[in-house]
Design a protein around this nucleic acid. Structure first.
Length: 493
RNA sequence: GGUUCCGUGGCCGAGUGGCUAGGCACUGGUCUGCAAAACCAGCUACAGCGGUUCGAGUCCGCUCGGAACCUCCA
């Protein structure tokens, strides 16, 4: 039997070429994917979470189609500078000084927080989660290789990538972001420490550590620490090879971070790193991008508990995920209470339909073309991971499911196919989280609810509307909704 | 100032030149003791102005508005 990825071949919008291209992996049946992870110096905010949720969707879909996927997502725990890649203070070290903690204590705390949030959002852990500090040796070796190539130079204990030398040697700095060298130079500001560089566009591969700098490692150029861009080149090629399939990250990393990565990779491996570069778009708040540095943020934890003045209520992580999945990963998504509330209704409707579908029976007929529907669902996802279209198709099925009473008008085999596909889409791929149907509790609850519903039915028979409505309202407050239908009353959580 | 991108109905958001996106909200109806849920029907669109085309939300140009990047950022 053909693997699903041959039935529904994937097309990916490649940032490197600007085109939507058929996906063809380096190795048949395998996918190597690297995504730039967070810098763990503060709580991950919702915008960060969107990027990783987007790539979780992509990771899950590749796996679902039958690919063996190695998904590498790093933790940046050093080398990410505060103001400027060449002169600023290390973010981790700065935070550590402020809170009087060891740098690794900061790293640990926020790494744990990050993992917790991603778990709540239903994201699978990556296959490998390497840290920058765990790959100092590789980064030094890479710096040496670039020096040997003549595309870097040492200056006052630091090593910089020589962008002009790279370009004069056939390099194409700017290939990803569409920037031209002369524009970059015209637009760059006069920054501290620039005098060490030959060209304002040059970027640090290795930075000399000042005597007070805590995070430091010995190197051929003296004690120092790696530049930010280098870690991703080192770790991606170490675990995925010189040329791998997908490199992802937030749109804001396209320039300069990914541009620098490509230059470094070209120097060391003669490849761009990844064949397909993918960029997840920003989540905006009040029309502006969420950002740690500007304070325009909502934390996932605040969203899940409702503890933020911007929020009217708490939202379940699954609702938040659904909200994100309703927009395409490459589009800017604007956050608002209204949008979350709308998403919550849709989310609940979708999951309610799944509960109905699980218990549905088939009465035969051709009321719904299940195979065509299934094809549309997969085609949407294979078309550059278009989750909004997938969700639109899911709601077509919801309409059919809800409209059917006394059994779905399809053959038994089609019902099974509908159930399997529906389940795969909402749980395996979109990774929504349904109400836990833990059978032991469920049985007990069912019995209790049967009793309550019976009592209320008696009250209604006696036209004791007060009692009947009291039961209904109290249950509603407890999160249980009664539905009076022609065939009796049912309930849902 | 430069690079890239966006501007879709009350709101959020898909739309690869020709065929109903979808969700939420709203209106009417069915059902109901009343609701809720569900279903049926309806309802508002493609920022503006030109151009290409038999035909444009979709391509091109201009204008207006917004965003990201150009400095750490998912």
């Amino acid at each position: 039997m053909k693997p699903l990825y041959e039935v529904y071949p994937i097309h990916i919008e490649n940032s490197l070429t600007g085109e939507k291209e058929p996906f063809s992996p380096v190795q048949e049946g395998r996918v190597g994917m690297y995504v730039c992870g967070p810098t763990v110096y503060s709580d991950v905010h919702l915008g960060n979470a969107r990027t990783f949720t987007s790539f979780d969707l992509i990771f899950r879909y590749f796996k679902h189609l039958g690919y063996k996927v190695r998904y590498v997502r790093n933790i940046t725990d050093v080398g990410h500078l505060e103001n400027d890649a060449d002169s600023g203070e290390d973010k981790i070290a700065k935070k550590a000084r402020l809170e009087a903690l060891e740098p690794m204590e900061i790293v640990q705390r926020y790494t744990v927080d990050f993992h917790k949030v991603m778990d709540q959002l239903g994201a699978l852990p990556p296959s490998i989660e390497p840290t920058a500090t765990g790959h100092i040796v590789e980064q030094i070796a890479m710096t040496q290789a670039i020096l040997a190539k003549g595309w870097a130079y040492e200056s006052n204990g630091s090593v910089y990538f020589d962008v002009n030398a790279y370009n004069n040697d056939g390099g194409d700095y700017g290939v990803l972001s569409g920037r031209k060298m002369d524009e970059l130079q015209a637009g760059s500001r006069a920054l501290d420490g620039q005098d060490e560089k030959r060209n304002p566009a040059d970027f640090a591969l290795w930075k000399k550590a000042s005597p007070a700098h805590i995070m430091r490692w010995p190197s051929p150029w003296g004690d120092g620490f790696p530049g930010w861009h280098l870690e991703c080149s080192a770790m991606s090629t170490k675990y995925l090879g010189d040329e791998f399939d997908i490199h992802g990250g937030g749109m804001d990393l396209k320039f300069p971070h990914h541009e620098c990565e490509i230059a470094q990779n070209k120097a060391c491996t003669n490849h761009n790193g990844a064949r397909y570069w993918m960029h997840a778009n920003m989540l905006t708040l009040n029309g502006k991008r969420m950002s740690k540095s500007t304070g325009n943020t909502i934390l996932p934890g605040e969203l899940f508990t409702g503890t933020n003045d911007l929020l009217v209520k708490a939202f379940h992580p699954s609702v938040v995920r659904f909200f994100m999945m309703q927009a395409h990963y490459s589009s800017v998504l604007d956050f608002s209470n209204e949008a979350l509330l709308a998403a919550e209704k849709g989310h609940d409707k979708l999951l309610a339909a799944w509960n109905t579908l699980q218990q549905a029976s088939a009465k035969g007929g051709q009321g719904f073309d299940v195979q065509a529907w299934k094809d549309k669902c997969y085609s949407a996802m294979s078309d550059n991971f278009n989750s909004p279209i997938l969700i639109a198709h899911l709601f077509e099925a919801v309409k059919f499911i809800n409209a059917s009473e006394g059994g779905l008008a399809i053959a038994a085999g089609d019902l099974l196919k509908l159930q399997q596909t529906f389940k795969a889409m909402i749980f395996d791929i979109l990774a929504l989280q349904g109400v836990e149907d833990q059978s032991a509790h469920k049985d007990a609850l069912d019995k209790a609810m049967d009793l309550v519903i019976e009592l209320r039915a008696q009250a209604r028979t006696n036209k004791d509307w007060g009692t009947a409505d009291l039961i209904r309202d109290q249950l509603k407050d407890a999160g249980i909704q009664l539905k009076d239908g022609p065939e009796g009353t049912t309930y849902s959580l």
